[in-house]
């Protein structure tokens, strides 16, 4: 569960005030709205990369507003993916698990499981540079899900993919998120993507966040 209570964020010249919303456990919500409205800023505030100057961020009813990003237990896939270039795919997947001091046996098991789910087992020994766009997305998703976070944040991860790969990724996301029961908040521009994935839509427009369950509201968004 993700909840924002009257959150104020300032990022340079740009600011957002009074942002409140709630994503229920196991829900898949999309955050839509034109570019430059601050969707990414909201995501960064939730995972702790941007300071919140007012209000509260709650993850499963725990107030994490003052928590360090690493203590929040949130899986985050940024738009640029930011895979670790000096590591192999396997090392990227193991990264969060080693930080959490998992036993080597558990790490092997988890990587096996993840790479199977995401169909990247054949890529494990590859370096990041040698991956295609779709493969990189899978690895970034795997890295974010590796430590079994309760919350997953996706920032337009598929904007650079071609139609076919994107459809594939939608299917994959549906499976992965429903099996892991993770609460997901996903920024997207694509109404199609929202239709394919979400059971909840949030629209950020002119600094206000509105909830739109109705199809028509979401369609207005370019």
């Amino acid at each position: 569960m993700i909840e924002l209570q009257n959150v104020n964020i300032r990022a340079g010249q740009f600011s957002l005030t009074g942002i409140s919303f709630r994503v229920e456990p196991n829900e898949y919500a999309v955050l839509m709205g034109p570019t430059g409205q601050g969707k990414t800023t909201i995501l960064e505030a939730i995972c702790g990369l941007r300071n919140v100057i007012g209000g509260k961020v709650l993850i499963y009813d725990q107030d994490v507003t003052k928590f360090q990003p690493g203590d929040r237990g949130i899986g985050y896939v940024p738009q640029d993916l930011a895979l670790f270039p000096t590591m192999t795919v396997q090392q990227n997947l193991e990264f969060a698990l080693k930080l959490r001091k998992w036993s080597p046996a558990d790490i092997v098991k988890r990587v096996e499981e993840l790479s199977g789910e995401l169909s990247i087992r054949h890529l494990l020994k590859r370096t990041i540079k040698a991956l295609s766009g779709g493969e990189s997305q899978r690895v970034a998703l795997g890295r974010a899900l590796s430590f079994r976070p309760s919350v997953l944040l996706l920032d337009e991860p598929f904007s650079a993919l071609d139609e076919v790969t994107r459809a594939e990724m939608h299917g994959l996301l549906r499976t992965v998120t429903s099996t892991s029961g993770v609460t997901t908040l996903h920024i997207t521009h694509s109404t199609q993507e929202a239709e394919a994935l979400a059971n909840r839509r949030l629209v950020l427009l002119g600094g206000t966040l509105s909830e739109s369950v109705a199809e028509s509201t979401a369609k207005k968004v370019p």
Binding site: P69, G70, F95, R100, F147
Partner: peptide
């Protein structure tokens, strides 16, 4: 890019760990 450090921090790193494990290499 500082982005890899950011992501490392969401994965559980402190700033020191993100620097040592991700940026320094």
């Amino acid at each position: 890019s500082p982005r890899t450090e950011d992501v490392a921090r969401t994965l559980g790193c402190t700033r020191a760990q993100a620097f040592l494990l991700v940026s320094l290499p």
